[in-house]
Structure formats: structure tokens, C-alpha cells
């Protein structure tokens, strides 16, 4: 969110304001936020400590040694990481096509890119499972070549890549469009070829946007459930993702266990986002302007 550039007239805090509505606006915002987000989140955070600090710590220690929980978190983390990284390549290419090229059908592509974001995850799930399954349009031919995708970790990565793609395109395309051309022109005048311009001038200017895009795709991917469970084999220690383990624990009536995994999952994704935002700030320093 870049909020800084336009909005505020500079003035002291709490000064009387010409605009009405601060009180009711803030009140309503806080009310809704408290009731619909904070209340349940506090329930999540408080739950492990319900029987005292000691038993809470014990529960965490126990979870930290539970191989099944660790491997489920590992599968989610790794798949989201790989998917978000790999997504950068097609995402950047499609963003380029939208922002800098004049290929026919650009407007259609522009519209289609949002589709993975709007498609319900369960639909994505059964579709990917069928498409890449042993008898699917893609899975069938690949299977004859000896490649299995459905019900393996590759399948999980593909499903997360699908839902993550729009985040990359939508973050990178506007930056690419607004990139000042003078640096490119200068580089070209100084005799750089197209590849050099791309790698030395354009790509570095895109780093902050690429990092943001990666972060968004990753955050979406690590918690992804519906699009993954149908194509993942859901085998413990192998293709079982953390959100599925939460659901399994709930069905076993092990609310405590489910809560612990949920809490750790939230912490991982917040921590990753914080790291990414640090990284982006670091990168923006290097380039003029930035995002």
C-alpha cells in the first residue's frame, strides 16, 4: 500500500478539523475490526494458554517435536516458496506483454490474468486434479513419459502457482508501465544492447516490485487449502499441507492441536511478510524512486 504521496495536509495531531466524521468513522472501524477480526484472532492467540503458561509452553514444545506437524509446515512453506519464485518468470513475461508490448489480444490477456484470483479455490482444486491426474489432458501424456504430477509435491506447487500468478502480474505490470524511459535510452545511446538494458537497467528497477509480488504470492500460497487438497496426495510426511492437518486435527476433535498449528502458520506468514517488507525497503534505497 503506498499511501504517502498525496493525501494529508500537514498538521498537528488531534487538531480540530474542518472535516467531520473522524469520531464516527474511527468508532465504526474499531467496532467492526474488534468484532470481526480481533475477537477471533485473540481467541486463537489465547487458546494455547488456557490452562496456564506452563501447559501452553509444553504444548508448543510438544508440537515442535511432532514430526508430522513439522513436515506439514515444511511442505506448505517449501511449496509456497518454490511456487512464488517460479511464478516470477511467467508473471514478469506476461506483465511485459501487458505493459510494454503490442501483441494482439493484449486486452483479453489483461482480463484473463485476474481469473485465477476470482476462481473459487475448490474449483481450481478439482480442475487441477483432473487436468494433471493420470487420465487428464496434461497428466495423461506426461504420465506416458513417466512423469507424475498429481498427488505429488509438484502438483501442490502447480496449484499454488496458479493462484499466485495474478499477484505477480498485477504488481509488476504497473511499475513496468511507469518506469521512466530515460535510463533505458541513456543506456542504449551508450551502446548497450537489448539484453544488457534489460538485465542492467530494467530488472534492477523492478526488484522492489518483484519482491512485493513474491511476498503476496507466498503469503497466499502458504495458507492455500482448497486448490491444493484435491491435487495433493495428502500423505502424512510427504504431501500433507499444514492447513489440511488443521482440518484433520479438528475432525479428530483435537481443537488444541489444530489451534497450535494454526497459530504457528499465522506467525510464519507474518514473519515472512515482515522480512519481505524489510528486503523491499532495502532494495528501494538502491534505486531512485522505487515503487
Amino acid at each position: 500500500m503506498t499511501m504517502r504521496r498525496a493525501a494529508f495536509p500537514i498538521r498537528a495531531r488531534w487538531q480540530r478539523d474542518a472535516l467531520p466524521g473522524f469520531g464516527p468513522g474511527l468508532g465504526l472501524t474499531l467496532f467492526w475490526l474488534a468484532g470481526l477480526v480481533m475477537l477471533p484472532m485473540v481467541a486463537l492467540i489465547a487458546r494455547p494458554w488456557g490452562e496456564g503458561l506452563h501447559s501452553g509452553l509444553q504444548a508448543f514444545a510438544h508440537a515442535a517435536h511432532d514430526r508430522r506437524i513439522l513436515s506439514a509446515l515444511g511442505v506448505s512453506f517449501r511449496s509456497a516458496l518454490i511456487a512464488a519464485l517460479v511464478d516470477l518468470v511467467p508473471g514478469l513475461l506476461i506483465a511485459w506483454a501487458l505493459a510494454r508490448s503490442d501483441i494482439p489480444g493484449r486486452r483479453l490477456i489483461d482480463m484473463l490474468v485476474d481469473l485465477p484470483f476470482a476462481l473459487p479455490t475448490a474449483v481450481v482444486g478439482i480442475t487441477m486434479a483432473t487436468l494433471y491426474g493420470p487420465n487428464g489432458w496434461i497428466g495423461g501424456p506426461l504420465g506416458r513419459l513417466g512423469l507424475r504430477i498429481a498427488f505429488t509435491q509438484t502438483g501442490i506447487v502447480l496449484a499454488i502457482m496458479f493462484v499466485g500468478l495474478p499477484f505477480v502480474v498485477r504488481t509488476v505490470a504497473p511499475v513496468l508501465r511507469n518506469l521512466p524511459r530515460d535510463a533505458e535510452d541513456a543506456a542504449r545511446i551508450l551502446g548497450a544492447n537489448r539484453m544488457q538494458v534489460l538485465l542492467r537497467v530494467i530488472l534492477p528497477a523492478l526488484y522492489p516490485a518483484l519482491v512485493t509480488a513474491f511476498g503476496m504470492a507466498f503469503a497466499r500460497g502458504i495458507g492455500e487449502y482448497g486448490s491444493v487438497i484435491f491435487i495433493a496426495g495428502n500423505q502424512p510426511f510427504h504431501t500433507e499441507i499444514a492447513p489440511l492437518l488443521i482440518v484433520i486435527r479438528l475432525q479428530e476433535y483435537d481443537t488444541q492441536g489444530a489451534t497450535l498449528i494454526g497459530l504457528v502458520l499465522v506467525m510464519i506468514s507474518l514473519l515472512s511478510l515482515a522480512l519481505i517488507s524489510l528486503l523491499r525497503r532495502h532494495l528501494s534505497h538502491g534505486t531512485q524512486g522505487g515503487v
Binding site: 496426495g233 495428502n234 500423505q235 502424512p236 482440518v247 484433520i248
Partner: peptide, 20 residues
């Protein structure tokens, strides 16, 4: 046992459709 589905139908799907 490579996979523990939560219901009998899930297990049948694993065997029949996923080929596990």
C-alpha cells in the same frame, strides 16, 4: 499405510482415483 484419509470415501478415492 501411506495415507490416512478422514473418511472411508476419501480412502476409496485415494485407492481408486489417485492410484495409491
Amino acid at each position: 499405510v501411506p495415507v490416512l484419509d478422514t473418511g472411508a470415501r476419501g480412502a476409496t478415492n485415494s485407492f481408486v482415483q489417485r492410484g495409491l
